[in-house]
Computed example of a mutant assay.
Amino acid sequence: MKRSTLTRGLIPTAVVLSLALAACGGDEAGTDDASTDTGAAGTDESMDDTDAAAGGEELAGTLVGAGASSQQAAVQAWVAGYNGVQPGVTVNYDPIGSGGGRELFLGGGSDFAGSDAYLDDDELATVGDVCASGDIVELPLYISPVAVIFNLEGFETVNMPPEVIAGVFAETITSWDDPAIAEANPDAELPATPIVPVHRSDDSGTTENFTSYLDTVAGDVWTYGEVETWPGDLGGEAGAQTAGVVQAVQAGDGYVGYADASQAGELGTVAVGVGEEFVEFSPEAAATVLDVSERVEGRSDTDLAIDLARDTQESGAYPIVLVSYHIACADYEDDEKAGLVKDYLTYVASTEGQQIAADNAGSAPISDTLRTDVQAAIDAIQ
């Protein structure tokens, strides 16, 4: 199984990604070896491409963002790479989780949010409290598979059809040698080890994406719907943020959870049933799902929320996909703040920015077609 581009070191969830991108700044809290290496990679790119990505104007100031912990490896890479473009700009990002990030942004506590779920109708109704025009920019800038991770001695991968995955997390399948798992793995000698499912303890866009998949493909087994908060009547173990789930799964034989694939590390991962085949996660397989998905209807031109085709039967598609958004205002009362947001998001969306995220977090770069729509939305920020 190939993990070379998707295996990253875990960063403690308490660490706030805060890199001061001043000419004299270097080692702020949250910087680690990975982000240092990323900065070097970012500055090795063509300066013509870098200047084009940022508009060529030298800026100074501070941006505050918070939200999805799934993005944290990518955000480190983006912020370090942006240092080579705008050394006078400080970007702070706190990986507090998607729900917390959206809440903070909509309460006026940050300049932008990272979220593994787009704003729902109730949240959209409050945008006018923080954005001057009441309009929002939602940009799908981080695309990654959600891995079903497990810790089972002697196994690196296990095949599971959709209804089996649903049964594991609905706690109707409780042993690794259950006939439904054994049928999908005829050549494996599965142990009678109890299955212990692990879920997020916090409001999580990753949970929302994962349960959206379960609800779409196996709603008769997973009867809890698409939820951001894990159902309270289910047992299992819980972990705070992405790293907490990974650490909990690592702690016990037979444990299984879900997490952004960039943080799967050396844990085993499930090959997901799609049509007549079982598909392992990869950036390319995740990107395939977006190719067959549509925009959410009824949204503004700057709101690029995507309705994912999670029940696709497309060969080679990995359907448990996390599309993580950058959420910002279409209008800021402060012209300087608007300029900083536009410049930073332009870098993140650029070819260089997307490649840096792919290299450091294993994400799938957005297509040129999607980048055209994304840049048009960024250009509308004022």
Rank of each mutant, 00 (worst) to 15 (best):
L322P: 02
L322I: 00
L322F: 08
V323F: 09
V323A: 14
V323H: 08
V323G: 11
V323Q: 11
S324C: 12
S324A: 14
S324V: 01
S324Y: 01
S324G: 09
S324W: 01
Y325R: 02
Y325F: 10
Y325L: 08
H326P: 00
H326A: 14
H326C: 11
H326L: 15
I327F: 10
I327E: 01
I327K: 01
I327V: 15
A328H: 03
A328M: 06
A328R: 02
C329T: 05
C329R: 04
A330H: 09
A330Y: 09
A330D: 08
A330V: 10
D331N: 12
Y332W: 13
Y332P: 04
Y332D: 07
Y332F: 15
Y332S: 06
Y332N: 06
E333N: 11
E333V: 09
E333D: 15
D334H: 06
D334N: 12
D334R: 05
D334W: 04
D335N: 10
D335M: 03
D335P: 05
D335Y: 08
D335R: 07
D335E: 15
E336H: 14
E336N: 13
E336Q: 14
E336Y: 00
E336L: 13
E336F: 00
K337A: 14
K337M: 15
K337H: 12
A338F: 12
A338W: 11
G339C: 03
G339Q: 02
G339Y: 00
L340F: 09
L340V: 07
L340P: 00
V341C: 09
V341N: 04
V341F: 10
V341Q: 05
V341R: 03
K342M: 04
K342C: 04
K342V: 03
D343E: 08
D343F: 01
Y344C: 01
Y344V: 04
Y344N: 00
Y344M: 08
L345S: 02
L345Q: 01
T346L: 06
T346N: 15
T346Q: 11
T346P: 04
T346S: 15
Y347R: 03
Y347C: 06
Y347G: 06
Y347A: 06
V348S: 03
A349H: 08
A349I: 09
S350L: 10
S350K: 08
S350R: 08
T351D: 07
E352G: 07
E352W: 06
E352K: 10
G353T: 07
G353C: 07
Q354T: 09
Q354A: 09
Q355E: 14
Q355M: 11
Q355G: 15
Q355Y: 04
I356C: 14
I356V: 14
I356W: 07
